[in-house]
Amino acid sequence: MSSTLISLFSCALAIDDDEDELSKDIRNSLGRTVFLEYLRCASAGHSHGVLPRGVRSVKRMIDRDPGRRWTLAELAEGGGTTSGHLIHLFKEHLGFTPFEYLWDQRHARALIMLKTSTLSIEQIAYRTGFQSSAHFSRAVKKRSGQSPKSLRS
């Protein structure tokens, strides 16, 4: 089992067993991440199941800095492919686009920051790559059903 997978499991187990929406959202985001990491680990020993280098590279880029305002051209260049081919590879191997992955990572980090930090909502919005605190609030409410302020309480 990879150290990343072990770390993700530890994070999931450390979340309070509350039934509040924020805890559920964090567990769901971690669950998706654990699943993707499991697939990556499971396929690592089989050359036909390994994620293409471009997908792995782009995932690493996004994971390192999900708050950055990435363009598709930058991601494709980092993955050593074209924009269209990168989208195709992500959909084929992961089931979603690079930007769906990016937004999932931003949302997961934002939820964790809301739960564990004392940063203002505006600071969290900025650090996780949202255009404004209003954009951040709309995105969080759409995804979790609650405003960032109510998720903090």
Rank of each mutant, 00 (worst) to 15 (best):
M1P: 14
S2W: 10
T4R: 15
I6Y: 10
L8Y: 10
F9D: 09
S10G: 13
C11M: 15
A12M: 11
A12Q: 14
I15D: 12
D16R: 14
D16S: 15
D17I: 10
E21K: 11
E21A: 13
E21L: 08
N28F: 06
R32F: 04
R32C: 00
L36A: 03
E37P: 04
E37N: 08
Y38N: 09
L39R: 15
C41K: 11
A44K: 13
S47I: 11
H48N: 08
G49M: 15
L51V: 02
V55A: 07
V58F: 06
K59V: 10
I62A: 06
D63Q: 11
D63K: 14
D65G: 05
D65C: 07
P66E: 00
R69G: 01
E77F: 00
G80E: 02
L86W: 02
F90M: 09
K91E: 15
K91W: 03
L94I: 11
F96T: 02
P98K: 01
E100D: 06
W103Y: 12
A108M: 13
R109H: 10
A110Y: 07
K115M: 10
K115I: 00
I121L: 14
T128I: 07
F130H: 11
Q131W: 00
Q131D: 14
F136T: 05
R138K: 13
R138Q: 08
K142W: 01
K142T: 05
K142Y: 03
K142L: 02
R143G: 00
R143E: 08
G145P: 09
Q146M: 08
K149S: 10
R152C: 07
